[in-house]
Design a binder for these strands. Structure first.
Lengths: 242, 242
DNA sequence: CCGTAAATGTCGTCG
DNA sequence: CGACGACGTTTACGG
């Protein structure tokens, strides 16, 4: 059974020091920061700059233990004003210790369950659209199947060209070297299958980096730049099952 | 010259809808969320669950434009209570539109410049430890150099075995397929150097994923599982320079 | 639960 | 500025 957490979000602005130990060891000197405690128990420590990644954090599930500083106790760093110490710990042993020296703001809000994010334009959409329109790769081409399984993972599309020759297609939003390597591994494996071989390769992406293109073409892999909007425009929603 | 931003962090708890368009298109239905506006202009939208990644965000640098809703204006979603609309835009054209329907909390704090984080990573540590103890790879082995340079990047370690044969070592914390590909590219290049060739390969990691092991061994690359604690234990601090 | 691939990845570093 | 590798990657998906 999954633990039920109260639907609450606590936002604390405080002068603090932070120590993380786990996959690495890190220390944050004393400064004013924002500490968010989410309803699921996770903790985020943000400064005023930097993008969305916190300076330190603890992912759920984890436990928070708060110990008030005894009157007159002296903190290890920054003098004599320690208010309380939070110990946030995961099962893995990862630990975050927050020493709070001054609370500037403290509020808790009930946000409720978030209905979540609706996305459009990710790789799976490209794959679905191209699967429905394999003819954009060549006249008379047909789809054998999406997510064609191999021992080392599924190939995005397996097609046949007008002459019946097999073609494996790897689809990326942004085509980089990794994707070419991935397709190369699939091709090597597929070409060992006498029922399929010879198998050609197509590297299809909305954007193909020059080095990826060079590597692909050097290996005889055709590169195709996909136009998502055009694919979406041609796409007939009536033909879709869902 | 770098732009100077005011050292401020605004924290808003509000019922809102959010639309992102940029590298993809995404929509958040109306709900109560925390909106953080950092001193550098970046915007983060957090819900009550999920780990450190916000539901939506905009990285700096970006501009924020706020338009108050005319009295009686009707929002597209959720009825008639639109308060204001924020448009957060990056130079790339990425855009975040936040429709604020109800402000539950709004506060701005001056955090000051954060002194920053002190880190001690694991992989660099592994590399240093193994460099000092290449004998764990085989009796009589010697280190040629760490970060041995090649045209496509530095190899973690270049060694010689007891017979004088060259060995390239790729070190990872977690050994996955990407690491094997990386080492393969290095080996291909190093083996073109008549002064070094033939060059063997070792894939060394704290943990090696099964598929990575299969691929490596299929290519004649030896896999070595590193014991971080043991290496650290054997390590003589007196031999270290720092 | 494990393993792999995707990500609005982000974040350094180096050329 | 682009390319590349590391990341306390996190997150989603499939067996």
């Amino acid at each position: 059974m999954r633990a039920r957490y109260p639907h609450r979000m606590r936002i604390l602005v405080a002068r603090c020091t932070v120590d993380y130990s786990g996959r690495l060891v890190a220390h944050l000197p004393q400064a004013v920061r924002v500490i968010m405690v989410k309803g699921d128990g996770s903790v985020l420590i943000h400064s005023e700059a930097g993008s969305y990644k916190p300076l330190n954090w603890m992912s759920p599930p984890c436990t928070i233990r708060v110990v008030s500083a005894p009157a007159g106790d002296v903190a290890e760093e920054g003098g004599d004003d320690l208010v309380e110490t939070w110990t946030v710990e995961a099962k893995s042993g990862d630990r975050l210790v927050i020493s709070v020296h001054e609370v500037i703001h403290d509020a808790t809000h009930d946000l409720g369950v978030d209905p979540g994010l609706v996305k459009d334009g990710v790789e799976s959409h490209l794959q679905r659209l191209l699967a429905e329109q394999v003819a954009v790769l060549g006249d008379g081409w047909t789809l054998v199947r999406r997510e064609y399984p191999t021992a080392i993972g599924p190939v995005d599309l397996l097609c046949r060209d007008a002459t019946g020759r097999s073609v494996a297609v790897e689809i990326k939003r942004r085509g980089e070297i990794d994707g070419v390597e991935q397709l190369t591994r699939y091709l090597e494996l597929l070409n060992r299958d006498p029922l399929l071989a010879p198998v050609d390769g197509i590297f299809a992406a909305q954007e193909i980096k020059p080095q990826a293109r060079v590597l692909a073409e050097d290996r005889g892999i055709r590169c195709v730049v996909l136009d998502y909007e055009a694919l979406k425009g041609t796409d007939d929603p009536g033909l879709r099952l869902f």
